[in-house]
């Protein structure tokens, strides 16, 4: 029974992992760039939702939409000013622009917000749902449902709207997309904005059970990379499956190993997947 409970817990958190990692895979899919600063946008999303709760009294689940909008805008600006310039640069430039961005965002949040830990209080914080012998914390369930909702919205956007199709066309062949009258630069701005916005949204919905501080992103860096590499960098569907897989692996591994080694299991999975099949276990190879 402990095993089933662990799987259930893993699926709940895995849904959130999927959403925060979709952004990473989306940016890679459209631009071929790994955004090492992705987790910093999760931190920023959490801060936006935290301040929305503190000053506007918004529940983080509602505030998450505000996080998405604000960070989407920031993402468009970052794409226009930084990422756009290294699109055709060698990998070393692409890697270190985003690493530099990571350092800048982390230390700006540290300077502006201080190094204190912040958390929100909600009415449902300690409630649990009981299904037979199994328990689900309400904040975990709520975050999971919000994650599913946003993943579904993204799917609708990319598959059912003109902008989504244009974005996918840009990912496939920017030159051909340009010839079809698609503004590829604009599509990349939308893709980067969406990518970091999704991650910020995922950060905001976990705020009811997670404290926020300037270096909270650290805990998610390798985790996000594991999710997307499992699912295949660039594959959105892969990121969803990868997210659930990572959540379950993490949760189940605590039954067998001490909690400090939780991430170790993930890193080993990560390195193994990279070694065996760098294009991902699930999803189409690029």
């Amino acid at each position: 029974m402990a095993f089933i409970q662990a799987v259930l817990d893993g699926l709940m958190i895995g849904g959130v992992y999927a959403v925060i990692s979709i952004g990473l895979t989306l940016v890679f899919g459209v631009m071929g760039i790994v955004n090492f600063a992705q987790a910093e946008f999760l931190t920023l999303g959490m801060f936006v939702a935290y301040f929305a709760w503190k000053f506007l009294g918004l529940d983080p689940l509602i505030g998450s939409f505000l996080s998405f909008v604000v960070i989407f805008g920031l993402g468009v600006v970052v794409q226009m000013t930084l990422i756009q310039r290294v699109l055709n640069a060698p990998p070393v430039a692409q890697i270190f622009v985003t690493v530099g961005l990571l350092i800048v965002i982390e230390n700006l949040t540290l300077i502006v917000f201080g190094s204190d830990f912040h958390s929100v209080t909600t009415s449902y914080q300690t409630s649990t749902l009981r299904i037979g012998p199994l328990f689900i914390g309400i904040p975990y369930l709520a975050a999971f449902l919000m994650a599913l909702l946003s993943a579904a919205a993204l799917w609708l956007f990319t598959n059912k709207t003109w902008y989504g199709r244009a974005m996918r066309a840009t990912a496939q062949d920017p030159m051909a997309a340009n010839l079809m009258g698609i503004n590829a630069d604009r599509m990349r701005q939308i893709a980067f904005g969406l990518g970091v916005g999704m991650t910020a949204f995922g950060g905001a919905v976990i705020l009811p059970y997670f404290t926020v501080h300037p270096t909270v992103g650290h805990q998610f860096v390798v985790l996000m990379f594991t999710v997307v590499v499992l699912g295949g960098l660039g594959s959105v569907a892969g990121a969803v499956v990868g997210g659930f897989a990572v959540g379950v692996i993490q949760s189940v591994s605590t039954l067998f190993f001490p909690i400090q080694l939780q991430n170790l299991v993930l890193f080993i999975v990560f390195l193994t997947v990279l070694a065996v099949r760098p294009t991902g276990l699930i999803g189409a190879a690029r």
């Binding site: 890679f28 790994v34 990998p91 890697i95 390798v222 890193f267 390195l271 193994t272 990279l274 070694a275």
Partner: peptide, 21 residues
């Protein structure tokens, strides 16, 4: 062994994960 065939971003990711381990 795991990083032999990796290039660019993938190599950076793998080495990063190794130091984290």
């Amino acid at each position: 062994f795991p990083t032999m065939k990796l290039r660019g971003h993938y190599f950076a990711l793998a080495t990063l994960a190794f130091s984290e381990v």
